[in-house]
Design a protein around this nucleic acid. Sequence first.
DNA 1: CTGAAAGCGCTAACAT
DNA 2: ATGTTAGCGCTTTCAG
Lengths: 341, 341
Amino acid sequence: MAVTIKDVAREAGVSVSTVSKVINGHYSISEATAARVRETMRALSYYPNASAQSFARGATQRVVLLTDLERNIAFSNPHMFEIIAGVEEALRRRGYALELRGTDKTDAAGAARDAIARRSADALIVHVSVMSHALSALLTETHFPHMVLGVPGFDSQVCWVDINHVYSGVLAAEHLVKRGYRRIAFVGGRDYDLSSTNRLEGVRRGLKDLNCPLSENMIWLGDSTLADGARMTVRLLEQSPRPDAIVCANNYLALGCVSAIHAAGLKIPGDIGVITFDDNPFSHMTDPPLTAVDIDVRDMGNQAADFLLGIIRHPNKQVQTYITTSNLIERESTARPRRRP
Amino acid sequence: MAVTIKDVAREAGVSVSTVSKVINGHYSISEATAARVRETMRALSYYPNASAQSFARGATQRVVLLTDLERNIAFSNPHMFEIIAGVEEALRRRGYALELRGTDKTDAAGAARDAIARRSADALIVHVSVMSHALSALLTETHFPHMVLGVPGFDSQVCWVDINHVYSGVLAAEHLVKRGYRRIAFVGGRDYDLSSTNRLEGVRRGLKDLNCPLSENMIWLGDSTLADGARMTVRLLEQSPRPDAIVCANNYLALGCVSAIHAAGLKIPGDIGVITFDDNPFSHMTDPPLTAVDIDVRDMGNQAADFLLGIIRHPNKQVQTYITTSNLIERESTARPRRRP
DNA sequence: CTGAAAGCGCTAACAT
DNA sequence: ATGTTAGCGCTTTCAG
């Protein structure tokens, strides 16, 4: 058998409760005995049994994260994993562990109910991709500590964190105008792609506030693929006057956009500026490297975890919240405005 | 307080051990009482306390996965997360949970020792990125059930699974030759990029076996970026005779390669064929879509988990193993061989 | 500041 | 086929 708290107690000549208090840093133990006990623990290579601690404490020091882990998800949505990595990082820093649990939208509520009822975690993190009315109801009714990653697409009382894509769009607009671009165009995803839609909304709003409104014929929406990005860019370049800058809703579109511009024999940023969102996966690999409004998703994960730990400690503080941490990474693709005619 | 096994026992008019046996599907319980107990559990909304079960059983039904979760890892290495998703999937199917724990190479051995000593998991999965001699020694000395994802870069007795990149290279070579390509070139990553190096080795071997050896001046290595992919392709196209097919070690290189071919005014696959590895993230988004030797990393995760569960059950069966599941996804980029002169 | 002792909820020998 | 019961290793009152 492994060495237990009893062995340590006997060896150190104290009671098990004293050892326990030393383990948990209880104030009432004198430094002298604490030191002796610690020494004994080291000498015996004692490590508290995690299951026994969870059981006795009635707390697991663990949070379960529910999300869609369907095939190819890591390639289609690396964002989500970067958030998860951020969550894990912040959790670990405070002594909590992260359990990853894949589910689909229909099973998520059941999985959550199970985790709550069985007390397999002290809190739940739910990715919007598996959020449902049933799950929302469960979380609010049980008052179980939770955090939803992304805003639920429906009315709900759950706690959530999200990225302010609209604000990111504003940042992009402001940057372009500041650099002297005036005839700005937008190449985006379909209207069900909320990040694209919100980014467009932000660009629109930002430009309007700077008295440089985005004209509707400068907006093209399509699939988020290289091919569609190129196709839409070709259309834009045919217009006259031609746009002097293009905002691409994501990296895929941006890549198609850049290649179409090159194919047309135009120079970036001399003839036309290009800006995109997310500094991944290849905004920095193109020629020239692209200016990007970066979304710090890792930070979003950190924040989500920190909020959650706060809720665990103060269960009444159920806050609904919204965070944003986009910031501009300026590169060559918007470095020089075209000279005005 | 929540409802416990005692409540169920009392309500169903049986002993707690009977309820326990029903929970665990013990054979000795008659179907009649089992049904009655199950009914009572449902009526009382009883769910066994997970911590208590872990504690009493002395098993957690959980495995800890140790890996590097540094910033931007999800973007730079989506592969790893796809494997993790595969691991989780297989684990969950057998009633096991996955705990994700980030660490760096120097801390990994400590984290592992901690998990083992505290019994916070029944097994350990370690990603090669954090593998060290110390960790290797720990795993072999403790005989703790484990599985390393990827082959350790040094001599070691640990269990590991990996992808057969060499075989993938052979597949690529065979496909190209079958399609009539003869002057085959390779565009790869630096020599420390093991997947690229192994793929090259496979291509070399495959071509040799088909009496169509890869000539050394047809091999270019560089950074795995669009820019370097394009640069190396330009060099290849300058050679005479020009290659009639190019094998790209990864998607980034392939994308640069494709754009360089287009820029040179050549047609794919008419003038030159292109094949790459991994069907992600954009081999299918290019024009034309690329033939790819796909590495089923999700499946690798599945296998790793299944092996591990086998080891948990039969701790003496410590097998070292190697798996491969690459298969060809044929698309337009290798559809038509250039006519021989 | 330290110790005694009562659980935490469940499992698994063992007895019947 | 079912019940009795002794733990599992730790935390946490409560006494002293």
